[in-house]
Design a protein around this nucleic acid. Sequence first.
DNA 1: TAGATTGTTAATCGATTAACAATC
DNA 2: TAGATTGTTAATCGATTAACAATC
Lengths: 204, 204
Amino acid sequence: MKNLSKNQIQRMPIYLKYFKELVDMGQTLVSSPQIAVRLGYSEEQVRKDLQAVSDEHGRPKKGRELASLLDAIEAFLGYHESKKAVVIGCGHLGRALLNYSGFPAMGLSVVAGFDVEPRQSSSAKPVYPMSQIKDVLPTLHADIAIITVPASEAQSALDLAIEAGAKAIWNFAPALLDVPAGVVIENENLSSSLAVLSYRMNQR
Amino acid sequence: MKNLSKNQIQRMPIYLKYFKELVDMGQTLVSSPQIAVRLGYSEEQVRKDLQAVSDEHGRPKKGRELASLLDAIEAFLGYHESKKAVVIGCGHLGRALLNYSGFPAMGLSVVAGFDVEPRQSSSAKPVYPMSQIKDVLPTLHADIAIITVPASEAQSALDLAIEAGAKAIWNFAPALLDVPAGVVIENENLSSSLAVLSYRMNQR
DNA sequence: TAGATTGTTAATCGATTAACAATC
DNA sequence: TAGATTGTTAATCGATTAACAATC
């Protein structure tokens, strides 16, 4: 498998979703021009992207097999082996992510939450007190810690999660966090997204 | 002002946050090497980025004035003129964003929510029935519609918002949406972020 | 066959990095 | 002065786009 650029990786779930729609509509083949038009990419880029994750060749004049593309992208994204995560900080956003119905389709299973003071949860998922994370997290086999605590507590929440065995951090707190070597972090930065949105608004 | 790349735009709020921390700590000047080390960028990139938004020159051996940097970045990001937004779809995520305390610091004021069936809201912000959007939205002077409805309803929610006068869409629904020319859209795609995270996890 | 689409190879474009003289 | 940091200019790198022969 080639090394994919970050942009390419980010496009993969978008292809996947679109291809699933096409399959639902009964289509079995798809061509780069069709994809390019719908997704707003160039044909060449579509071909490069798909070649990067699939070894199967397309057929001139026809396109590519949707079934094999779905399989290739899902394999690439690791949707076959379900990943497990916990949510740390069960405020509004934390509870939203704890119960988010879109995750299972991404191969992500959010198994529990942690909170400094867990209220009676309205969800089916258990919410443990933060003080128990070191005992409980290892029993859950969750590699990913989703950080949804206030920015001021994010670093200490992260440290506790890593101490308890988390291997990856998905950070939703607006804070600049340090992670030890070997731990992966992905920042979900709303201020960056908003910056792009308002820049584009001002360009008009 | 030069044209900034998307990456540069996304970095600006990160600089801003860091610079505010430095000011809080009593610092008045900052050098590119210091920034580069803390944020994990290269010195050259830091200089390029700051030169792109600020006309003030730095001083050799000293660095740059934090006060003027803050001002330049905030001006660039439009934090001075507060932008207004409404949340469409007041489920878990929608309510989280309706009450998100981080937005004011980004110059964003979320003034109201809409929902097909507004429950008694626990928040200070009003939640209107979706059926009233065409009448209510224009009175709110909100340009930005934050879409947090289920994917299956996202396109029709977006269409209603635009019909009611929204000029920009911040989409949190996992759906591929069409917008008319002249309307800006920014997709907050959790599946793309997760893809990057798990790709990095697998690389180890 | 003609035409659409493919995969490959080359060209372009843009962002990041490197080099270096200027300056406080 | 020496040394750190600056801004500018050039080089590199990587991603996207273009060109085109191959093929069903």
